[in-house]
Amino acid sequence: MGIKVGITGPIGSIKTDALNKIMEMLQNNGKVIEGTLVSEKIEHGRVVAYYITDILTKRRVEFARIDLISRVKVDKLGVDTKLLEGLLVPSLQKSREEADVIVLDELGKVENTTKQIKAEIEETMKSDKSIIVTLHKKSRNPVLQEFRGYESVRVFDITPINKNILPFKILKVLNGEEESI
C-alpha cells in the first residue's frame, strides 16, 4: 500500500517550494512522478487566474479566471470545468497506471468542481500508489479531514522554520525509512 503524504501550510510559495524539492529528490532517486500542479496568475497583488499543469506532459491550461462567468467557482474565480476535466482526468488515470508517486497539488481547490473530477480524485486516493497532496491549512477544511481518513496517511504542516528540512523528512517517509515524525 502506498504512503499518502499531505503538506499543509499558509498561502504562498512555501508549500510549492517544498513540493518541488521533494519531486526533484524523488526523480533523482529514479522515481516516476506524475499528477498535476496548480499555479496562479497574480496581477496588481491579487489572483486573477489559476493554471493546472500535467507533470508528465507539461501541458498547462488556465482553468479559472476572474472574468469567466461560471456557476462553478474557485476562490471567486469562474472555472472552465471542461478544460479542467480535460487535463486532470486523463492525468490521474495515467498516473494510477504508470507513476511511482502521484502528486495532487492544491487538493482543496479542484476536488468539488465536478462529479467526474471528484470521482477520479477518490479513485486515485484509494489506489495503492504513494501520493503527495498539498492543501491549504484550515482547521475545519473537510478536504483535509477526508484526506486524513485514508489509510497510510501522514500530514505535515510546513512552516518557515521547518521548510528546509521537511522535504528530507517526507522523502524518508515515502521511502519507508521513517514511520513517524
Rank of each mutant, 00 (worst) to 15 (best):
G2K: 04
G2V: 04
I3T: 07
K4Q: 10
G12A: 15
I14N: 13
K15R: 10
T16K: 13
T16R: 05
D17N: 09
D17R: 07
A18F: 02
A18H: 00
I22K: 06
M25R: 10
L26G: 00
K31G: 11
K31W: 05
V32D: 13
I33T: 01
V38C: 15
I42R: 13
E43N: 09
H44A: 15
G45V: 04
R46F: 08
Y51Q: 07
K58P: 14
K58S: 04
R60N: 07
V61F: 05
E62P: 09
E62F: 07
F63T: 14
I66Y: 11
I66T: 12
S70V: 07
R71S: 13
V72A: 03
V74C: 15
T81G: 07
K82Q: 14
L83K: 15
P90R: 13
E98Y: 12
I102D: 04
G108A: 03
K109P: 10
N112K: 12
T114C: 14
T114V: 11
A119Y: 00
A119D: 09
E120D: 07
I121K: 08
T124G: 03
K126L: 08
S127P: 07
D128L: 11
K129M: 10
I132W: 08
T134V: 00
S139I: 14
V143Y: 04
V143T: 12
Q145W: 06
Y150F: 12
P160V: 08
P160M: 12
K163F: 01
I170M: 01
V173H: 05
L174A: 00
G176E: 12
E177R: 08
E179S: 13
